[in-house]
């Protein structure tokens, strides 16, 4: 049995809204310890992962291992129909396995229930990078304000949706996007005085090409947190992470474009 309390605009809803146009199914695994959501975009170029420990989720109830495929559009449409003040609970029960119920309760105790089928998609689990992997395979990381990151992603995506480059040295971070009519460069210098807001940490310079469209989509989600951290590798996907709550986190991975 699973009961997942949701609020319009919370991280779970936010992630679902963000990936609505990228992916059809969110794979959700719930245990007594918490929730893990994984969604791969339909072109198989990006992954978003949301980790929510039970202690960060007020009212979270799960007494067994539950692995389900949630149709993102159905869920988002239902949440959009609800009122901001409604208490929303996502339920998967033993008696109605194969379906999901989304219950909305207004402050006046009026209720609306949505019931829809779970997606029978084969759950694909990936071994996503742990700290050891990040330390050994990623040559650099950059911490920056999420609002600033979103602004850059929007700017890059507006110029060119298909081809962007991130480069980092121990002195600066640069973004580049190639558009049809022009290019855009954005450069950030490492500030020596204040490294709490913007901090570059590199073992060696890294340059990687990527598709700006995906970063722009995920950047919206990262504004749920004040800061984002980018992990850059010469051989592995670009990873962007933000912390949610006490121990939760959202991560996205964008496949690098291979340059000659």
């Amino acid at each position: 049995m699973l009961e997942l309390p949701l609020v319009k605009g919370d991280p779970f809803h936010h992630v679902m809204e963000a990936i609505l146009d990228l992916s059809d199914v969110a794979h959700v695994v719930c245990t007594t310890r918490g929730l893990n959501l994984l969604a791969v975009d339909t072109k198989h170029l990006a992954i978003v992962s949301l980790l929510f420990p039970a202690e960060d989720f007020k009212g979270y109830t799960c007494d067994e291992y539950i692995s389900i495929g949630i149709p993102i559009r159905d869920l988002v449409n239902a949440i959009r129909c609800g009122d901001d003040k409604d208490t929303i609970t996502l339920k998967v029960g033993e008696e109605n396995f194969g379906t999901i119920t989304l219950s909305f309760v207004s402050p006046e105790k009026n209720t609306v229930d949505y019931e829809f089928r779970l997606v029978d998609a084969k759950l694909e689990r990936f071994r996503l990078p742990d700290r050891h992997f990040l330390r050994s395979k990623y040559q650099g990381s950059v911490k920056m304000p999420s609002v600033e990151f979103r602004r850059i992603c929007k700017c890059l995506s507006n110029f060119g949706d298909e081809y962007g480059v991130i480069s980092v040295t121990d002195e600066d971070l640069t973004y580049f996007a190639k558009g049809t009519d022009g290019d855009v460069y954005v450069e950030y210098k490492q500030q020596e005085e204040d490294t709490t807001i913007f901090k570059i940490d590199v073992r060696e310079p890294v340059r990687l090409a990527f598709n700006p469209k995906y970063l722009n989509t995920f950047a919206k989600v990262f504004t749920l947190s004040g800061q984002v951290k980018l992990f850059l590798s010469k051989t592995h996907p670009l990873m962007v992470e933000c912390k949610i709550g006490q121990k939760g986190r959202i991560r996205c991975f964008v496949a690098p474009k291979v340059e000659p």
């Binding site: 198989h44 992954i47 694909e124 689990r125 990936f126 071994r127 996907p237 496949a255 340059e259």
Partner: peptide, 14 residues
């Protein structure tokens, strides 16, 4: 010039 490996090719399946 801009070939694109899939994201899945970078991760092992569990």
């Amino acid at each position: 010039l801009r070939s694109q490996p899939t994201i899945k090719s970078f991760f092992k399946r569990v």
